[in-house]
């Protein structure tokens, strides 16, 4: 989209304005990404002494391994769970805070702060609470409620734990954006609906939600990307992909094979697959969601 009215006679300036971004992107993003693409077709030793071009061998090895197929499935669960929990959580908090009159500022502060915690530290904090051996909450669950909580051996417990830890941080992020969007809705509109007899739920469904749908759309993209890419620190701190691969999401596998396993080819091939997945995901979101999204402006 471009402004109907624009500076059509300042082409050189436009290029100049774009130059810093493009320079950094070329040197630190596109050039390295192209090299990753190249690596995906090679088998090389980590020291960079030998590389052999192997066509699609890396992809074949990856796609034929049952562990990778498991990883795809676990990623689907993880990113759906995290995105849903984080977006809904953020929306719920925003709606509640927008509604209450007393203690608004305090509530806001208390919801926002987790956003300031580094993902890897978030992972460590949650581990400290929920580790079956020394975690305070884990012990409480076991002794107080008789719940045999064990994310070290139970895959579902582990998945729940990483989803909670990953969405915990994102709830604050989504909350900030939803609250801004909610407060941007003209009061007159809602008052008019109230006068017409629409109750709180009805008002939310038919007026508020459509108006904040651009924000929701933006947040969906951001959250899926977050769940796909920015969460390996959390997985690394909490489960190492275990138990038995239950939380072995794609990005953790890329990290584990590339950085712990030092298999650049295998890791790059997975990166390429991951890129394709995210590109497809983004295109789908754009195609189908943008049509339904009603832009406020």
């Amino acid at each position: 989209m471009i402004k109907r009215v624009n500076f059509e006679r300042h082409r050189w300036l436009a290029f100049l304005l774009l130059a810093p971004q493009m320079l950094i992107l070329t040197v630190f993003v596109f050039w390295p990404a192209a090299q990753a693409l190249m690596q995906a077709f090679m088998i090389s030793d980590p020291f960079g002494v030998k590389s052999t071009f192997v066509w699609f061998d890396n992809f074949e090895a990856i796609l034929s391994s049952p562990e990778y197929l498991n990883s795809i499935w676990r990623t689907a669960i993880f990113s759906t769970g995290t995105t849903a929990a984080a977006v809904l959580g953020g929306l719920l908090f925003a709606v509640l805070v927008a509604r209450v009159r007393r203690g608004k500022t305090a509530y806001k502060l208390l919801v926002i702060w987790p956003y300031a915690v580094a993902p890897v530290l978030a992972g460590i904090l949650w581990l400290f609470l929920f580790h079956p051996i020394y975690g305070a909450i884990a012990l409480m669950l076991k002794q107080g409620f008789g719940i045999a909580w064990n994310p070290l051996l139970n895959g579902n417990d582990a998945m729940l734990l990483v989803i909670v830890a990953a969405s915990w941080k994102q709830v604050s992020y989504n909350f900030v954006f939803f609250l801004a969007a909610l407060q941007g809705i003209p009061r007159s509109l809602i008052e008019a609906a109230a006068i017409d007899g629409a109750g709180p739920v009805r008002r939310f469904v038919s007026i508020i939600f459509p108006l904040i749908s651009p924000t929701t759309f933006f947040l969906l993209v951001i959250n899926v990307v977050y769940a796909f890419f920015d969460t390996f620190g959390i997985i690394h701190a909490l489960t190492h992909g275990g138990p038995s691969g239950a939380t072995d999401i794609l990005v953790y596998k890329v990290y584990a094979d590339g950085f712990l396993g030092l298999d650049l080819g295998l890791s790059s091939a997975q990166s390429v697959i991951l890129m394709i997945v995210v590109i497809a995901l983004t295109v789908v979101q754009f195609r189908y969601l943008e049509r339904r999204v009603k832009y406020a402006a």
Binding site: I2, N6, F7, E8, H10, R11, L13, A14, F15, L17, L18, Q21, M22, L25, V29, F30, W31, P32, A33, Q35, A36, Q39, V221, V225, F229, D230, F232, V251, V254, Y255, G258, F259, L264, S267, S268, S271, L274, M275, V278, I279, T282
Partner: peptide, 27 residues
Amino acid sequence: FRFPFRMTAFWLIFATLMLPIEVRIVP
């Protein structure tokens, strides 16, 4: 601004959303 490759520039920038640093970290 209206200039050649404007949409290309936009999509190039947008594409970096799909190339997070985790994916291309070694190079």
